[in-house]
Design a protein around this nucleic acid. Structure first.
Lengths: 210, 210
DNA sequence: TATTTTCCGTTGCAAAAGCAACACATTATG
DNA sequence: CATAATGTGTTGCTTTTGCAACGGAAAATA
């Protein structure tokens, strides 16, 4: 549907051509960045997996977003309030590019090809993010843990073009992502197995319905 | 924080200059648009209020987004699946501009000033939407009805710069927006009053804590 | 103005989800 | 390899939420 601009090649070709970015490598469990008001950072995950995690005042942990290769993140996408701490945590070894959104928006003085291409394609990149967020909202508005699980599984199944797939999360993290209690979720997973909706071997799920 | 481009003046100045748009007026409860795959419509709400509503297979109704003056909506922001019907319903009399996103993206042949300005400012407009969606996700990930209500109230209070404000929804619709049962929400509102967190007169809420 | 429709407020009861605790498996790490 | 840390799977109990139903208020409509 969307004019899917090839971020992959684009990044490979141009990631070294701009002076105003920083490239950093992180190892598992390191904090990639903390969201800070008014900084307007824009980051691109070149490689690896990372989670945007929120800790609220009660100490609850929520996985706000899960990022894989080529994901965009940073303060640009977020209104930071004082009630939460927002961190990006590396879930595996990661390579990340850091930009200032203001630089991108106003183009960098070198007028480098990267910035040119990026600013042309930025609307599309951000739109992709919007559709991701809308899918997330669709999941979160489901009224029961069962529906959240089935909704998420069907989404993964569509993405992988297969009724069988690995979860990109540990089950503990999946619960944080769906915003439900882990033990209640485990109970529901058991019921889904018993009721013949799914098969489950470790982190591999197979959908049986329809 | 964001270079806040003045959509209001922009729309006033240019809304009549482009050939490729349609302007329509709707009265309360009319369906403004239905989301259709591959159409890539982009709409701007010039005036009034409208809700993006989803009906799922179980007949559950969810208010996915609430739009007021100058809101952007349309299929561009959404991956449409077959499991849901997505409608925009006018909550009051509305005036709406309809564009094709493809026209905006590729600029219209007349090369009109509207399209020029719009495509320059589109990233910013979409970013505003992203931050809205992230706020919504923050609300929906709260674990209890109480926290959802308090979170939503504090958000409104921040926006209005006052501890006292009118809800933009009926209470029935608020429940659909927070994705909770209406009667359970009413019960929780009563408890919030009893516990001294809020005052409530009809749709006017006053925050008492802190 | 009379009447219909929608919304508000409430409640008892049933179902779902959260909490806490534990044993065991698996994976990191010294 | 031994040990620590993290993740999985399970359960009893408590709390929260959803469901269904109803009367009355408010708003829309004839």
């Amino acid at each position: 549907m969307n004019t899917n601009f090839d971020i992959e090649n684009f990044i490979l070709d141009f990631s070294n051509s701009c002076q105003k970015k920083q490239k950093k490598v992180f190892s598992k469990n390191e904090v990639v960045t903390t969201y800070i008001k008014n900084r307007n950072q824009l980051c691109i995950l070149l490689d690896g997996n990372a989670d945007l995690v929120r800790y609220d005042l009660n100490g609850n942990r929520t996985i706000v977003e899960h990022f894989s290769k080529n994901a965009l993140f940073g303060e640009v996408f977020y209104t930071i309030t004082t009630n939460n701490e927002l961190l990006v945590e590396a879930k595996s070894n990661c390579t990340v590019l850091f930009y200032s959104y203001d630089d991108i928006f106003h183009k960098c003085r070198n007028n480098c090809k990267f910035h040119q291409t990026l600013s042309e394609n930025l609307p599309q990149l951000i739109l992709n993010k919007v559709t991701d967020l809308n899918m997330r909202i669709e999941l979160l508005t489901k009224r029961s843990t069962r529906d959240k699980l089935l909704g998420y599984f069907s989404l993964l199944s569509t993405r992988k073009l297969s009724t069988s797939f690995e979860l990109p999360f540990s089950l503990t993290d999946l619960a944080d992502y769906l915003s439900v209690d882990r033990s209640a979720m485990m109970r529901e997973l058991k019921l889904l197995k018993e009721d013949g909706f799914i098969e489950k071997n470790g982190n591999r799920i197979t959908l049986l319905y329809k």
